[in-house]
Each structure stands twice: as C-alpha cells, then as structure tokens.
C-alpha cells in the first residue's frame, strides 16, 4: 500500500527582510501517525518552518502540502485541519480557562454543546478541571502550557504542531507534558510535529527527527538510527588487577581500545547489547573479575555535535535567557 505523506515539503525557503535566510530550501516528508521532531538550537529555523506549515507565514519560495492542501492557496482548509500550540502563550488572561477553550472552539464552528463536552474531556486529560472556571492570569506556568496544549486540540486536529511545548518548564512539569503528548499518539494516532532544542524531549517523543541548523536540515532518521550512525557504544571496565586489562584486549572478537589506565579500560563496540554477554562469558572463562562495569549509549547530543560541529549545550546561555523571558510572561502569580 502506497500511502501519501500527510506533510510534504519541497524546497521550502524563507528569507526575512534584510536578507536573513531563516529557512534554506528544506525538504521533508512526514507520514500519517508519526511524531516528527525538529531538533536544533534557537534561531535554527524551526519556528519559521512551523509558521509556514501552519500558514501564519508565507514562504519566499518553495511549497508544502499539509493533509493534501497547499499551504499557499488553501490556507483556510489547512487551518481547519490542524492544531497549533505556538511557542508563545496565546490564552486570554482575562478569560477563564474554559472560556478560552470555548472561544477557540467557536472559531472552528464547533456547536456549543459539543464544545462544552469536548472541553471537559480535554480539561480532565490535563488535570485542569478545577482551574477551568478561574481566570488564566491566576494560572502557574505549567498550567498555562497545559491549557495551550488543549486549546490546540479543541478542533480535534488531524495534525498537531507543537513548537517548543516545554520551553521554560521545570523538569517535573516537562515529564508530565511528555506523557500527555505520548497519550495523543497512543490514543488518537495523531500526527505530531514537534520542535525542540531539548535532546531528551526529542528522544522521548519522536519517531523520526531532523536535525536543523542555520535553516538547513543536516540529517534525518529515527533517534536510534542517528545514534547508531555514531558507530558504537562505549563500555568501561574496571579491573581488580590492572594486568587483566591486557588479557581482555586479546578477546578474539576484536575490541577498539579508546583508553586504558589505572586498571580502567574503555572500548568501543558496535552494539553493547549484543557484545556484552559474549564479553562477560569470555571474562568468566578466563577468570577475570571486574570491580566496575558501565555502558554508555551514544546520545542525540553527540549526534548533534557530529553534524553541527558544536554542542547543543553551548546554547545554554541564550536558552536560559529565552526561558527566563518566557517565564516572566508565564508566571504572574
């Protein structure tokens, strides 16, 4: 069966006034039911891409289709089909959570009774039932982000765009958001396009990911594929007797030594899950005892480093700044 991708992006380009190339001729195909991650630092062009796909911004050149509709000519049809959770908060602070949901529902011509029933269900999903009648200005940052998520779901979208859904949230609240997002995929089979500059987030949620930097897609694949492309896991052995280190290196399967000193040996193997049991039986047969053993799987951070030449963590300073500015707006209470 040949399925048409639900999102197809062809040479999409955005050049802002003043010649800033925000998105540089990107190509993407996203399948229905996929959680697709766009990973990159601030200013990589993730939000600009999302803004074009959600028809808030028109492209300088190139085109894309979302659910079969052209983003330039059929923007209204797309808006009806999709849900958007932008990076910035959009709820009206003067209205209650429920009123915000009902207001947005009315934009999609959802009948009042259906909208009420749907709002209650969504509020239950994100634990906001009790807060629903209160003005949004009284909400905490995490509550506001949860409200934003369900506002984006009020029209029961086919495709959901999440732009930095957990930016500026504490770790615990972030994990809760992840559970909600996983639930959407599990329970509704929703196609979700997610941008983030948190590696853990993409790793936890996305089926496939594109690494974006300077408006270009550097690489695309499943998180596991990308990590595998780094060729191997690192195993660190600690020996009771330092000389045992030499014995292990005689292992017939062949080990790539990275580092050995003071009875600690670091080797790289293609797949630790497979190699480790064999190594252990080899150690047992040769009467070698270990004091410590650890396996380090490659993280997306290393993948990012390999493709961009710099670490995402180095973005820390500007990231904190942005998170702070966001929180200033989020937390008023």
């Amino acid at each position: 069966m040949d399925l048409q991708p639900i999102i197809k992006v062809e040479n999409l380009t955005k050049i802002y006034k003043g010649g800033v190339m925000a998105v540089d001729s990107i190509n993407l195909e996203i399948e229905e039911g996929e959680v697709y991650g766009l990973l990159g630092p601030n200013g990589a062009g993730k939000t600009t891409t999302i803004n074009m796909l959600t028809t808030r911004l028109s492209p300088t050149s190139g085109n894309a289709t979302v659910a079969g509709f052209d983003i330039i000519r059929h923007s209204m049809d797309i808006r009806r089909m999709i849900g958007v959770v932008p990076q910035d908060l959009t709820a009206d602070e003067d209205l209650s959570g429920l009123e915000n949901l009902l207001l947005v529902a009315s934009f999609y011509d959802v009948p009042k009774s259906v909208a009420l029933e749907r709002s209650q269900r969504l509020l239950r999903m994100v634990d906001l039932v009790e807060a629903a009648p209160r003005q949004v200005r009284q909400y905490s940052g995490g509550m506001r982000k949860r409200l934003e998520l369900i506002i984006g779901l009020i029209n029961e979208p086919k495709v959901l765009f999440l732009d930095e859904p957990t930016l500026g949230l504490d770790v615990q609240t972030r994990t809760t958001m992840w559970e909600y997002i996983k639930g959407l995929k599990r329970d509704y089979g929703m196609t979700i396009i997610l941008t983030s500059h948190y590696l853990e987030e993409i790793d936890a949620l996305a089926n496939r990911v594109s690494i974006v930097d300077h408006g270009k897609i550097l690489v695309t694949g499943t998180p596991a594929e990308l990590k595998a492309s780094l060729k191997g896991d690192i195993i660190t052995f600690g020996f009771r007797t330092a000389s045992d280190s030499e014995k292990l290196l005689e292992y017939p399967g062949g080990l790539e030594k990275i580092d050995a000193k003071d009875g600690v040996l670091k080797v790289r193997v293609e797949n630790a899950d497979k190699t480790l049991p064999e190594l252990l039986s080899y150690l047992f047969q040769h009467g070698i005892t270990l004091s410590t053993l650890s396996v380090q799987k490659p993280s997306l951070d290393e993948v990012f480093l390999q493709y961009t030449g710099r670490s995402l963590r180095e973005e820390g300073a500007s990231d904190r700044m942005k998170a702070m500015m966001n929180m200033r707006r989020v937390r008023k209470t």
């Binding site: 808006r79 958007v84 932008p86 910035d88 908060l89 959009t90 709820a91 947005v104 934009f107």
Partner: peptide, 13 residues
C-alpha cells in the same frame, strides 16, 4: 503583545 493574536491568526477565521 499578550499572545491572543497568535491564536486568532492560526485559526480559520
């Protein structure tokens, strides 16, 4: 400045 405009513009209105 407070955000609702972003929501309006993303809606089919």
């Amino acid at each position: 400045r407070l955000g609702p405009m972003g929501r309006f513009l993303a809606s089919p209105i």
